[in-house]
């Protein structure tokens, strides 16, 4: 539970961080729902996975460091993990989507360049 004798600056700082992170994540998810093609939508989740996660975890680190309830190892680990894995999953999915689109001959996708060396 939140202690009553919390300093005002801390609650404001943590609140702003968490709100900013949640807002960016929300915007990213709205983008996911609103943007019109797959390759545009792939940009939307990075909003939540970069600054959204960063702000929320920063708020959490600040809160637990100042109140001294626990050591914030988990936040650091989660941040490292999310920032490394999200690009990897997005790249894999993008390549899968390219492969599938080429297979079906869908328009607007550039052709594969493998096996050509004309630069």
């Amino acid at each position: 539970m939140i202690p009553d004798d919390l300093p005002l600056w801390l609650s404001l700082l943590v609140g702003i961080c968490v709100l900013a992170g949640a807002f960016l994540t929300l915007v990213g998810s709205i983008g996911l729902a609103r943007l019109s093609s797959f390759y545009e939508r792939i940009h939307a989740p990075t909003l939540g996975s970069s600054l959204g996660t960063g702000f929320i975890l920063l708020g959490s680190v600040l809160y637990f460091s100042v109140t001294g309830q626990r050591l914030s190892v988990h936040e650091v680990l989660i941040f490292i993990f999310v920032s490394v894995t999200t690009p990897v999953t997005l790249m894999l999915l993008a390549r899968a989507a390219l492969y599938r689109d080429r297979e079906e001959g869908a328009g607007e996708v550039p052709p594969s360049r493998f096996g050509r060396d004309d630069g």
Partner: peptide, 18 residues
């Protein structure tokens, strides 16, 4: 200040749920 934090966290949770 506890009330401020409580309500900002609640607002953040609503945003994340949305």
């Amino acid at each position: 200040s506890a009330a401020i934090l409580f309500w900002t966290l609640a607002a953040a949770q609503v945003m994340l749920a949305l």
